[in-house]
């Protein structure tokens, strides 16, 4: 059997980076699905791209800037209206612990 493209430990690491609490069943399923997709994607290796520049924008442009002008802000209330939890004019979040 071929070496898996992605291991369960890698799935767990990536899920942690992406801040997704996956159940054990989800992790297993995710691993096999990602494995299949990555196996498909492996076909890119057939192409020699050593002397090919990457394209990050299909329509190349440069130097798009705005002048340093102040524009009106939105009212505090409008900016907080969607907050899941607030305390006066702040957004409130649960206790911060470092990972």
């Amino acid at each position: 059997m071929a070496e898996p493209k992605i291991t369960l430990a890698e799935v767990e690491h990536v899920a942690r980076l992406a801040r997704l609490d996956l159940s054990q069943a989800e992790k297993e399923r995710m691993r096999s699905q990602l494995d299949a997709i990555l196996t498909y994607i492996d076909k890119l290796r057939q192409l020699d791209t050593d002397n090919v520049e990457p394209t990050s924008h299909a329509i190349p442009m440069v130097n798009v800037m705005r002048e340093d002008e102040v524009r009106p802000c939105l009212p505090t209330e409008a900016m907080l209206a969607n907050a899941p939890e607030r305390a006066s004019d702040f957004f409130r979040v649960p206790r911060i612990i470092e990972e």
Binding site: L44, R45, L47, T49, V52, E53, P54, T55, S56, A58
Partner: peptide, 11 residues
């Protein structure tokens, strides 16, 4: 990185 290079080829 590889995908962005392949993108150049497609373009």
């Amino acid at each position: 990185g590889k995908a962005q290079r392949v993108r150049t080829l497609v373009r």
